[in-house]
Structures are given as C-alpha cells and as structure tokens.
Design a protein around this nucleic acid. Structure first.
Lengths: 240, 240, 240, 240
DNA sequence: TATGAATGAGCATTCATTCAT
DNA sequence: AATGAATGAATGCTCATTCAT
C-alpha cells in the first residue's frame, strides 16, 4: 500500500518517477529466483511490486523482456568489470587471478539473478535469446582470451582448450546455486575462493614446478567485496 | 512416430503389455529434451507416444512424476556404476580417474535427460524434489568419498574441500549443455576428457612434483562407450 | 438469451461496465437451480452469460466462490429483513408471526437459489463453508432469540429448546423443494402459511388456553409479496 | 489387506462369499456421508473397500446404482417398521406418537445414509430417481394416512393439510444433519424427542383443551434403541 | 503514465466405465 | 468372481496479453 519515496516529491504524486519500473524489477528478480520464471505469473509480480498489470506492460513489452532486461543489465556490468581487469597492466597470472576472484565476487553479489538466468534462459524466444547469447559470448571470450594469453606466456598449460577451461570455471561457479547452502560450514566467499584456487591450480602446466607463485590459502584480508553476505534471503551463506 | 511391435499380435489387439508405459517414457524424454519440460504439454506427449491421456495418468501420477521417474532411473544406473568403480581394488588415483571418465561417458550417453533435469528440477513440488535430492546427494557423496580417500592417501591436495572439488567437476560436466555444440572443433568425448584432465590435474597437491603419474592426453583406445556419439539429434557433437 | 442494454452504446463496444458480473450471476443462478451446481459446468455458465471464462475468473476466484457469492447476498438480505422485524416494537407474538411469514415470503421469492444451496453447500471447501456457516448461524440466532423472548414472556412453551424449535421451522420450509410441486392443490403461499401456522401452534404452551390470539386461517389479503408466483419455471406452483 | 471372515470358510478362499459387495457398500456409505456422493470417486471407494474396480462393477451396474441400492435397502426397512406401527391396534394418538418416535429412532440409527440421500438424490438419472421416488412416496403416504386418521377421529386439527404436516415433521428430522452437532448440549435422542413433541403438539386442534393426553417430557426409559449412539464418527452426539 | 476488465487459447488432471483375460 | 490397463470426453482453471479510458 505505502510506497517509500526515495527522493523528495511534491504535490499528490504517490511515488517518484520510474519507481514503478524499479519495483517491478526488484519484485520480479526476487520471485523468479525463488519460484522460477515459469512458475511466477505476471499477476504475482505486479502484486508484489504493488503496481498494476498495465504498468508492467508499459515498461516491458513482455514477461520475457523483463527477464532479459534483468540479465542484460547484470551482464553489462560484469563485462565492464572484466574488461578493466583484462586490460590491466600486470603479468597475466595476476590478471587471471584477479579476474577469477572478480567472477566469484560478482556471483556472490548477484546470486539470485544468475540463478534465474541459468534456469530460464532456454525459455526465451529466438530473438531475445540471440541478443543475450551474443553478449554472454562476448563476456566468455574476454575471459578465454586471458587464458589464451596465459597459454602464450607459458603460465597456463597448453594441452587443454582455453575454451573448455573457461567454461569449466564459469560453470562451476554458475552452478553453486544448485548445491550451496548458507548454513553449511563454508561461506560463499570461501567456496568461491576454493573454486578459484582449484581452477588456477588446474591451469598450471603439468610436471615439475619450481615455485608456487601464490599461497593456496584463501588469503585472509583480501576477501572480495560482498563475498560474505550476498542474498536477501540468507545474509550469512555457509554451506556443507 | 513408428511403433515397433515386440511380439506378434493378431486381430485388433492394441499393443503388447507394458508397452504404453515404455512409449510414454520414450516420447516424454525426447520432447522434454527438445522443447523443455514446461513447454511440453501432456497432450503432446500422449500424441507422440500414441496413447491416451488416461493411459499416461494410469502409469504416472502427474506430469512431474513422469519427469522424476525418468531422472531417478538414470540416477540409479549412474550410482550403480559409480559404486562399482569406487568399490574396486586399484589405487585411489586410478579409481578416481576411472570415476571421472565414467561420469563423462554417462553424461555423453544421457545428455538429453540430464539437460532436462538441470533445467526443470526446480519446478518440482517439495515432495518429489526431496526424494530425488536425497538420491542425488547419495551419488555426490560416493564421488566425494573417493576424493577424500585420495586426500588421505596424499594423492589429492588437502587445502581444498573435497565437497567443493566434487561439485566443481560435476558442475562443469553437468553444464556442458549450455555451451557445447556438436558442430564445434571438439567432440563431446574430447571435451569430457579435457574436463576430467583439468579436474584431475587440479586435484594434485601444489608444489614440486617428481613424476606425473599419468599422461595428460585423452588416452586413446580407452574412450568410454558412447563417448563419441551421444544424441539422437546430433550423433557427432563437435563444438567451438 | 437476450441481452438487455442498460445504456446506449455506439460502435462495437462490448457491454456496459459491470454487466459481465451481473450476467454471470444471473446465468449461474438459473443453471444451478435447473441442473444443479455440480452438473453445471463453467463452460455452460459463460456460454449462457455470453462472456468468456476469463471474465468469470476475473470476478470470481472459483466456481464455488460464485456459488457462495450468490448465497451470501441472499442471506444478507434475509438477515436484514429479519433484523428489522425482530427489532420492531409490537408484542413478541406478533413479531414472531411476522418473522415466520417473512421467512415464508423470502423462501417463495428465492426458492431456486435456496434449493441450490441446500443441495451443494456440502461441496464447498472449508474456508468458504466456514464464512457462510457463520453468517447462516447469525441468521438462525436472530430467529431463535425471538423464540426465546417468547419463552420469557410466557407466550412460548419452555419445555422445548428454542434452538430445536427454530431449526424445525426453518428446516420444514427449507425442505419444501424436495416435495412441493406447483401443480398440486396448494400454492406455495398456502403451504408456507400452513407451515407457519403449524409452527406457531406448536410453540404454544401445552394445556388449557383461554383465547387463541389469532385466527388459524391463512389470513386472506395478507399474502406476502411474491408468495403466489415464485419461479421462472413455474409461476403458479400448486402442489399435492 | 486382511478381511475379517464373518462365516466359516475352508480352502484357500481369502474372503467369504459376498463379502466384496458388503465391504463396497460399507465403504461407499461412509465416504458418501463424509465427502458427498459427487466428491467421492469410484477409485476411492474401491481403495477403501480393498477391492478392485472390476469387482465393484461386477456387483453394481454404476456408481449411481450403488447409491440407489444403499437408500432402497434403508427405505424398505423403514417402511416395514412404519407399516407395522400403523397397522397396530391402539388408538390413533398412540400410533401416531409411536410412528414419530420410530422415525426419530431410525434417523438416529442411519444418519449417515440419510444424509447422503438428502444431498444426492437429485443427481440420479430419471430412471433411478423414479423408482426411489415411488418408494419414498409410499412411505410418506403411510405416515400421512395416520395423520388423516387422526383428523377423522378429531385428535388432529383439520384446518391444515395432512400432507403439509407430514412433510414438516419428516423434513425437520431429515434436516438435522445440517445443524446437529454431537458435542452440543443435547443428544440426538433428546433432539429427536423434542421434534416429535413439537410435531405432536402442533397437531392438536387449536382452542381450549380439556386434558393434555401425555406428558411433554422426553419420557425417560422409553428412548428408542440406538438413540444414544449413532455414528461411527461420533458415538455420543450432543448438540448446541 | 498508467488502469483493470476482458480475452481466448491452452493447461494438467479426473473420472465413470469397459473389456480381454 | 474378479483383474487392471486403457479409454476419451469433459472439467475447472491459468495466464500473458490487449485496449478503451
């Protein structure tokens, strides 16, 4: 019933400009994550967002466009962050490590949205699927190119496909929603760091090695932002 | 489309006993894989299976029970195979490697069903979800115990959680449906072997190593059955 | 069949506002009364009301909610009438008699709806049943309190429970649908008056009585409105 | 699973002759009473009776024939009892009283079946409805003739129709299932006696009376058999 | 920048009944 | 005297979307 105004307004306006769109996105994200895209009706979204159906269709052309919007915003942000890391100046091993940790941090921050996407992307019609697929592909290529750069420099094993290694890491992280439970013994941040460590370790060329370039511990004090708390539903997030 | 008579019949007898159930499962598996569980109607299933709706509901309590049945059969088979490998007599490194390759082979053989499951498991009601979750958990624990055995023997690094490592490998394989394309440069078998290799390599304790206990190549001549061809739709399966 | 436009429209405008709800209620009442609640399908209702299923479910959450709505409106009206009589100023005998005759009149006017209710109330789910049960109970208590007032004043025998006497009268009237036939020798109004007379007579304390306070005849000229004609299907209503 | 043998059997027979039929009737009666005829599926009946569908259709031509069977057996018994009372030798007042009390007793004994009938009779197809209607009508006429005999003898008021008075009493009793609750202050036997008393009192001619021919109390020691306990579900049956 | 009544095709599911064995 | 797989038509209901206001 009541709407919290986030900016000063005058007169008889009940909510600030664009707030309807924002509350629709927030409600949809939460519901899609909890119940799934298909199991959430437009009616439920508008009820949770405290707007009418007409308002939703004013801002979004369809239910699937709403889903796509949520994901594309997320992807754009993540791509931007990755690009900055990849374009950095340090040695490739360091940039690779930074990239992996950034994926962990971003996954932690947006677990809900990413869960929704993983479960529902296949339901989109061809047009919308194509658009997001291209952007997602772009993100993947950015990461893979970093791996390839590592291969060229000798830091990464060359007997395995950079594509496969990239997908392996991204999949392992993107699947945490199917098994991670916040009440378990590890926080999401810890799990993420272990996954990054496992990935980075797996990249090293097989055979005798002179010096491990980094310590295998989760590096206390370097935890990525948002790593410890991540979801509206379970701020702690420890798992088995 | 075609109905194979498994025993000779005379007159206008409908079909051999139990054939209705079988054709329902076959039709549902194919349709769920191609179009998705939610996008496939019961009407379409019975049309493809050439039975009536009543027959479907005679054998399965609901559409979701049909989905669950398909998955549970698959999981039971996979669990049985893993148990035999885990209970084998060789050194743990070899059993771990065999287990990983078996997961690859099984994933290749049943990619369709596993894709369906990955996309639709979250739609099940609590009761059905609980039953399969328990069985799935059991399968996971079997694999994880092998990893733990490796940790105890010194073959596997101990600075990472066996649970996390197990999930990482299973997730990487279970997610191939989101990116693998049969027209790409690698067959599914090759991708699978690379994933196994990456996983096995990542398990090794960090630091100097005397002798790599196994060659990193995909082990020619040992390819698991069904590894090279996997799906009704794309027997070759090469990917980018 | 025919649709009466209640306001002038132009072009291909569908129908005046709120008319959909009204025609749904009218069609449902008629069909439920003629064929029974369970034997009437939602499809038949919307066809008769010349609306779509969606419109019906826009206004009513379910078929049973539609049934409940019809009855609750009826009950509210009847309760209101009874309250006015009970709160009147005359002697209790007169108010009791007026109340009984009002029940007769109301039953005559709404025989169809009441028949439907008597036959189908037990099919409702607990939630809906509870709501109407409470209102129905309220109506009953209003009548019973009048009987109790009569007992306190000495006009009504005290050796029998006011609750039981009230139920007896209401049941006798509410069951007329099982046996009354309009082609019989008595009109419904006559039957109703006899029932009221029987009830009122039964209330009198047993033993010698000085003066019968009212004539036992059906009181010509005082027939309640709608008593003589009651149903779309049988305007006359005489019975055996 | 286990069936209690009601008569000695030999050999490998699992249940006595006709026991399937009996358990079907028992299960159907119980389910129809609790959930309603329409809301009870044939599947539920055979599950409760521990027989198969085929067995049910072996003994009964249809679901409605099963319903009809239950009621006709009951009606035959009740009619037989009433006939014996009506054909008795005492004065008409006494026979009338005995008849009323017998209806009370019978209603108490078979409340479940009678409830089913009251709710579901209207669902039968014309053929079955006609058969039972004739028998029910016969029962009613037997009672009404007793009332008429009372009118002829001067014991019963003649200003009201014997038909109407009979229906009033039978309806009041037949409707107890809609309001009587076993936890209330009165037992079903007490309610029944009050209803009989109210009815009998209402029959007396209006105006001065010399001697009340009977005491208004529920006549302790004369309670009809079965009056105190009646239903599988609520042996006590007290009501508000 | 909304509103909300209405659409209409589609959905999963139920159910009394049949019949070859 | 039963079995139980199969029928097939019907049922109540959902839902993303539209559009006059």
């Amino acid at each position: 019933m009541t709407v919290t105004a986030t900016e000063p307004t005058v007169g008889r306006r009940r909510a600030p400009r664009g707030s309807a769109r924002r509350s629709i996105v927030a409600a949809a994200t939460e519901l899609f994550a909890r119940r799934g895209y298909e199991a959430t009706s437009v009616q439920e979204i508008v009820a949770a967002a405290e707007v009418t159906k007409g308002a939703l269709y004013h801002w979004f052309g369809s239910k699937s466009e709403l889903l796509t919007s949520i994901y594309r915003e997320l992807l754009a942000e993540q791509t931007q962050r990755l690009r900055e890391i990849a374009d950095g100046s340090g040695p490739v091993e360091e940039r690779l490590r930074a990239a992996a940790l950034d994926v962990v941090a971003h996954t932690a921050e947006h677990a809900d949205e990413l869960t929704v996407w993983a479960r529902s992307a296949h339901l989109l019609d061809d047009e919308q699927a194509e658009a997001t697929r291209r952007e997602r592909r772009h993100y993947h290529d950015l990461f893979r190119d970093l791996v390839r750069e590592g291969q060229a420099s000798g830091a990464v094993r060359t007997d395995l496909s950079a594509t496969v290694m990239t997908h392996a890491f991204l999949s392992a992280l993107g699947n945490t929603h199917t098994w991670f439970h916040p009440d378990g013994p590890l926080t999401f941040a810890e799990v993420g760091h272990q996954l990054a460590e496992l990935f980075l370790g797996g990249l090293r060329p097989p055979g005798p090695e002179p010096e491990p370039p980094h310590s295998p511990e989760p590096a206390p004090g370097r935890r990525p932002a948002g790593g410890a708390q991540r979801s509206r539903r379970s701020p702690a997030r420890r798992n088995p």
